[in-house]
């Protein structure tokens, strides 16, 4: 049997979500962003909520989300995604609202907005991409940049004595009473992508059930910023990023489930 005999509509088992537009991603080749963006669309499609969802794309590599989705998206100022989400969710509480934020956005310039939205238990989903670097502006140090890791603004490696320590923010957020669900994933293998999808589904279901804030962190690569090939970047991520940012659930059903002795 030849490929052309298999490639028939009735045999189709996977294609990108119909909620994705035809626009080409602005992401670099091999970037984890694309996988996460697609997976969110799959969850929204499978839940059948595309008419009731508003996404928020703040400044950073996330900023063009509105080009990629076929549902409503609001672009936000750098760091303000959680405030914008609050403003939206409070006036249309029956709709689904999610933010898609990078580490600079969520954990540096937008720390206050993130922290307080979580503390109020805003009934939203926060998707947090942690790749330890500022991708959009060309690879500067992020709050999550690892100790010793080189970026264009710490070219000799992050010196924690003068530049501060890598900020592991999600365990901090997990301790806020308004936060219902915190989990950390990656997208470097198909198995991990499937786990992420389940987590995203859980997060959106939490919102449906009015449980409060759900945070899905994705430890991801930035092969351009890291100066590695896509495959090598993923390997580097597994070896280095996962030590500081181990994968797994941190808070489930409002209860902290992580081992507090893990590196934080």
């Amino acid at each position: 049997m030849e490929a052309k005999d298999i490639i028939k509509p009735e045999n189709l088992v996977y294609q990108k979500s119909r909620l994705m537009s035809d626009a080409t991603f602005n992401f670099c080749p091999g970037c984890g962003h694309g996988v996460v963006v697609r997976t969110i669309a799959e969850v929204i499609e499978e839940m059948g909520i595309e008419h009731d969802v508003v996404g928020i794309s703040p400044v950073g590599c996330s900023v063009f989300l509105y080009d990629f989705y076929k549902f409503d998206v609001v672009e936000a100022a750098h760091g303000r995604a959680c405030a914008v989400a609050t403003g939206i969710k409070r006036v249309i509480p029956e709709k689904y609202v999610f933010t898609y934020q990078g580490d600079g956005d969520l954990a540096a310039i937008g720390t206050a907005e993130t922290m307080h939205a979580c503390n109020r238990g805003e009934n939203i989903v926060i998707v947090f991409i942690n790749n330890g670097i500022y991708g959009m502006t060309g690879g500067q140090m992020a709050p999550t940049t690892l100790e010793g890791m080189k970026t264009t603004t710490c070219p000799r490696g992050r010196d924690v004595k003068t530049m501060g320590y890598p900020l592991n923010i999600t365990p901090l957020l997990a301790q806020l009473d308004g936060v219902h669900y915190v989990t950390r994933h990656s997208v470097h293998t198909p198995a991990n992508v499937r786990k992420l999808k389940k987590a995203l589904r859980q997060a959106f279901e939490n919102q449906r059930d009015k449980k409060g804030t759900s945070i899905v962190e994705v430890v991801s690569n930035c092969n351009s910023g890291w100066g590695l090939s896509p495959k090598a970047a993923n390997d580097w991520m597994v070896e280095n990023m996962f030590k500081k940012y181990p994968l797994g659930d941190m808070k489930v059903d409002g209860k902290i489930v992580m081992d507090m002795n893990l590196p934080r």
């Binding site: 508003v54 928020i56 609001v74 936000a76 100022a77 303000r80 405030a83 914008v84 989400a85 609050t86 403003g87 939206i88 969710k89 409070r90 006036v91 249309i92 907005e113």
Partner: peptide, 9 residues
């Protein structure tokens, strides 16, 4: 920015 969000809706 909350105003921005609600205004967008």
């Amino acid at each position: 920015n909350m105003v921005y969000g609600a205004a967008a809706t």
